[in-house]
Amino acid sequence: MQVWHSEEDIPSELGRTVVTMGIFDGVHKGHRAVLAKTVAEAKARGVMSVALTFDPHPATVHNPDSPIHLVATLGDRLDRLAAAGIDATFVQHYTLEYAQASPREFVANQLVGQLHAEAIVVGQDARFGKGNVGDGDMLRALGSKLGFSVYLVSDVGDDAGHRWSSTRVRELLSMGDVSGAAMVLGRPHRIRGEVVHGFQRGRELGFPTANLTGDNLGEVPADGVYAGWLVRRVPASSAAEYLPAAISVGTNPQFDGVERTVEAHVLGRSDLNLYGESVAIDFIERLRPMFSFGSLDELLVQMDEDLRGTAEVLGVPTAGRVDPKKIKAI
């Protein structure tokens, strides 16, 4: 998939296209219905399929004091747009100045003028232009005047009436319901970050962990202990390695922690050296909330149970604590 960040990146020989637009945060099932229609229509017409997305998130630009935590990083978003079959994605740098374009200016200048749209595919809830006053009906009216076709894709959701959306994913993650979030996403929820040095308390107890911190990991679920996978690139290879992990999210109240971190213990491994690596964490199921215990022995008993629970959820062999003397690094 081609990725364009400015008009200069767009090939000069670009022909007509089928365009879809949106933030596509998480690229959930609702997004994929729109993307599938975009790709199918482009193939039927023999033209390129193009997605217009925005970075940073418009809500963060308009309300900087209440920034949106993205469900997925921009890199993962682009990977998933490519996996959906999109031929090219234009990443529009979103600013307050850019947001001043009227609906007609936005459609005529960017979608039709810059991206050469002969057809536009959006969800039925799409909004665009200054103040988000543009909608599906306005898009159809503009299509009649400017000469492009419009396809509105109906909302999709679950049997309980919840519409699949990035907002819904965030709601579920805020409750620790990572399996519910996976139903909307169509895959496990993933965060990504660089492994950094922690306090190394876990390795002293036989539970070495890969520690991730920072504000750019993606949407971190509610505090608790989870079963999941640590995903890393195999050194000197493009292949991905999935390692079963017990994942702790929180401030570590047992040791009066303050900073919220994500710590992943790979079951049974004492030989990993992950410092400085960019890894992903896939959350599969929440095992329990985060709380402190009356003694270190009580904590260790619960951590042993967490390892058993993780192995059961993931369908892998059970592994106990590792020998602290054999831990190389993590």
Rank of each mutant, 00 (worst) to 15 (best):
M1C: 11
Q2S: 14
W4N: 06
H5N: 15
H5R: 15
E7R: 14
E8Y: 11
S12Y: 06
L14A: 07
R16H: 14
V18Q: 01
T20Y: 03
I23N: 01
F24H: 04
V27D: 09
K29W: 07
H31M: 11
R32G: 05
V34Q: 00
A36T: 10
K37F: 05
A40M: 04
A42C: 10
S49I: 08
S49L: 06
L52S: 09
F54N: 04
D55M: 07
P58H: 08
T60N: 05
H69L: 12
V71P: 01
L78Y: 04
D79G: 06
D79V: 08
A83S: 15
D87M: 03
T89W: 05
L96S: 09
E97H: 13
R104T: 09
R104N: 07
E105A: 15
V112R: 08
V112N: 05
H116I: 07
E118V: 13
I120R: 02
I120P: 00
Q124D: 09
R127A: 11
F128Y: 14
F128N: 00
G131N: 05
L139G: 01
A141E: 08
S144I: 04
S149Y: 09
S149P: 02
Y151E: 15
V153M: 09
S154N: 12
V156L: 10
H162M: 07
H162C: 05
W164D: 05
T167L: 08
R168A: 13
D177F: 02
A182F: 03
L185E: 03
V195H: 02
V195E: 00
H197F: 11
H197N: 03
G198F: 02
Q200W: 10
T209I: 03
L212T: 01
T213F: 01
T213D: 00
G218H: 05
E219D: 10
E219F: 15
P221N: 08
P221Y: 05
D223S: 14
V225G: 03
S237R: 11
S237I: 08
A246P: 09
I247E: 00
S248Y: 09
T251P: 01
F255V: 13
F255D: 11
G257I: 03
R260D: 07
T261W: 02
T261P: 00
V262H: 00
H265Q: 10
S270N: 14
D271L: 06
G276N: 10
E277W: 02
A280S: 15
D282L: 00
E285I: 02
F291P: 02
S292A: 15
G294L: 10
S295E: 05
S295P: 03
D297P: 07
E298T: 04
M303A: 13
D304C: 12
E305P: 08
E305W: 12
D306L: 06
G309E: 01
E312S: 14
P324G: 11
K326F: 04
I327S: 08
A329Y: 03
